[in-house]
């Protein structure tokens, strides 16, 4: 990604070695967490496959010839999970979903858009919401389905929406 604004640490070789000093490591993990989230947000990715990630530029700086080891990647991802920015898709911890915006924030964003479009009290499909022409250019366009459902559930809890299923496809109605 040419236009991604890498932080200074990315060009700092020891950034790719988990630091022995606890204070330094704290700063390092913090920097890694925000780098991962920024990177995912920039490339509009929600999922992350750990095996693939090992060779992606995010964890592997080819120019410096430095990469984060698998153990170190897990350290960073676990830190993200503790902060509530990540959920594992299953127990094997092979892939995960990154939450660079909380579900409630997504929900609010979608709800505001629905209000602006006066689509209240109508049912629309989940596909329509994130892949339809109407939502093009919106930040939630192309949102991961798992994330979308979680976001809508936060709206449901506030009685602003209701998830429903019909003819095998899923939809939602906003109030």
């Amino acid at each position: 990604m040419a236009d991604f604004d890498w932080p200074w640490q990315y060009k700092f070789p020891p950034f790719f070695t988990i630091q022995p000093n606890i204070e330094t490591r704290k700063k390092q993990l913090e920097a890694w967490c925000s780098l991962v989230l920024e990177y995912q947000r920039h490339s509009k990715q929600y999922g992350l496959d750990v095996t693939e990630a090992q060779s992606s530029e995010l964890f592997y700086n080819k120019q410096l010839n430095r990469k984060l080891s698998l153990d170190a990647i897990y350290t960073v991802l676990e830190e993200l999970r503790k902060r509530g920015n990540l959920t594992w898709k299953d127990k094997t911890r092979k892939s995960c979903t990154l939450i660079w915006r909380t579900y409630a924030e997504w929900g609010k964003m979608i709800y505001n858009w629905v209000v602006a479009k006066s689509m209240m009290n109508t049912v629309c499909t989940l596909y329509e919401l994130t892949s339809g022409e109407d939502s093009e250019g919106q930040e939630f366009h192309g949102l991961d389905k798992d994330v979308l459902i979680q976001a809508l559930r936060t709206l449901e809890a506030e009685r602003k929406a209701e998830l429903m299923e019909f003819d095998g496809s899923e939809g939602v109605k906003f109030f």
Partner: peptide
């Protein structure tokens, strides 16, 4: 905390 270690050098 003044120095960082690099194990890949």
């Amino acid at each position: 905390g003044l120095a960082w270690v690099d194990h890949q050098s």
